[in-house]
Nucleic acid binder design. Sequence first.
DNA 1: GTTAAGAATGTTTACGCAAACATCCGGCAA
DNA 2: TTGCCGGATGTTTGCGTAAACATTCTTAAC
Lengths: 331, 331
Amino acid sequence: MADVARLAGVSSQTVSRVSTGHPGVVESTRRQVLEAMRQLGYRPNSAARALKRGTFRTIGVILFTLATTGNSRTVEAIAAQAAQEGYAITLIPVAVPTQDGVLGAFTRLGELAVDGIIVIMEVHLLDAANLVLPPGVQVVVVDSDAGDRYPVVDTDQADGARQAVRHLLDLGHRTVWHVTGPAESFSSERRAQAWRNVLEEAGREVPPVQRGDWSAASGYRAGLALAGEPSCTAIFAANDQMALGVLRALHERGRRVPADVSVVGFDDIPDAGSYLPPLTTVHQDFAEVGRRCVHGLLEQIRDERAEPGTVLVPTTLVVRESTARPSGLVG
Amino acid sequence: MADVARLAGVSSQTVSRVSTGHPGVVESTRRQVLEAMRQLGYRPNSAARALKRGTFRTIGVILFTLATTGNSRTVEAIAAQAAQEGYAITLIPVAVPTQDGVLGAFTRLGELAVDGIIVIMEVHLLDAANLVLPPGVQVVVVDSDAGDRYPVVDTDQADGARQAVRHLLDLGHRTVWHVTGPAESFSSERRAQAWRNVLEEAGREVPPVQRGDWSAASGYRAGLALAGEPSCTAIFAANDQMALGVLRALHERGRRVPADVSVVGFDDIPDAGSYLPPLTTVHQDFAEVGRRCVHGLLEQIRDERAEPGTVLVPTTLVVRESTARPSGLVG
DNA sequence: GTTAAGAATGTTTACGCAAACATCCGGCAA
DNA sequence: TTGCCGGATGTTTGCGTAAACATTCTTAAC
């Protein structure tokens, strides 16, 4: 910086003013400084800047995996929104979903240069890790029900699941079977809960749950089991990939979709429209979730007033070709 | 830090020594300092630390999107490996693949606190952006052929494609049609090139290319076109998602897979085994690519000797049920 | 022409840490 | 006993920046 100042014939403070875009620098001076910067290839040192300002303009995102569509889409949206607000994103992956894993991540995080953290996982896992957040670092949570302690932003899981199940009941199915996600996942539990509620409210029988792990392979296994249930005419899978596995299992067992069995997924991943048949599913607005996270976090950072509460992003049911009236009712 | 030193009855330098794990601090003193840290909730300020050390222990990853399986898997592997080496990952998304977009990202990047950068995109786009890298910041590139200027780590695209096409020819197909990815993508071009080469070497006719954009929807469109070609009995899609679209198109047009037409994909995404039928595809080891990237970059950072060159990660063909001998040869 | 007001620019300082150097102390060989 | 060595700890200093304050210059009103 001193070099730039010397070359431009000004003081280093003026260089600082130019590089931070402060007012009160006359145009001709400004031009000279910029030219000197260019010549010397000067770049402000962000460490020094952060030290002086006490802020890093960086948000940490802590999660288990990018392998699920939901997570990677959410992270992408967070990154995009943060970039627009002049913030960078630091990714903190937790290798294994154990207490140690989370604890390790947070220990690292404590020393990390972040002004706030977005947690994309069930918050109980954080508590279990006996976590102490660095003071002054704000938190927003996705995929959790910790709305009383941290601000939460999430898709309206329950409403999405309700729409899916009601759609199937409205088509005339007597009841709906459910392929659920892992028990540790809040989203998974919430979807299962809503499914159960709708059935109970409608006075329908609640069939046993098939548990999966979000993967197509687990959906396939669940689908094989369900294909053996003659009374099963409608299936609500907790995500699209498990729905894909269910479709394959039904196909292999000679049960036609949607003629014999209707299938609904959740997420509306881009591929869902290309499944055989194209999948009826619940559309999640991941981009909006990401935007809201960043927005909420920055608001907290600026205001220091943490006000827990939950923001729910609405869902829409996208009806494609994997659902139909049960065959007994055709016509 | 001064508070901690006072409470522990030592100098701030001793506190520093404890927190950096330096030797030469007697156990009893160390214990006292740690206790004082705990009581005061002290956390080292990473900005100051970075300023002093001149290093951030952070790697920047610049890319267009996390939406493609390959990118998100690679990023995940990079993050995991970096974490293990004590480095954090900063994500720099480039919203739009235009010169301005890339330039903007790099301007931001210039001010960013990173010791090295991993670029996951065709490097020509960087050049087009007239990019000036911050001096002292090392770069490793994925998905590019810039091996003469930057170190490159990539899947062995050509070999994977060769395996796919040869597999189809070996089964007895006269030729293989190709659904390619976007022209800007190096991976896409490399796969197409290898496909062409194998056909030419074998003296087969090279059918016109169907261009897609990696999405299942584009694969579907290409598939509809190919379903209208009676002579088309074998299709190599440049990724699994386009293969999914092709499968759907063939199904809709009444062409059976693999009885009438064989289909091969590329990537081996987790869902591929659950397609109808389960997809024969080329397995990419994204995790290995990520590991090599980080490894290469850290080596550069430590040695300062940039030695361009290309590291290729091998691929394997995974044969499932979407390929078979052409029907004329059955039995 | 004088002076005050305000704009443009310069000077000083501190942010929190860790490297480099300085000091202190106990122990051991001569 | 003396002197010296080396380990443990303390003191000084500077990393690059921007806030706060100081100075200079310009302009306009009288």
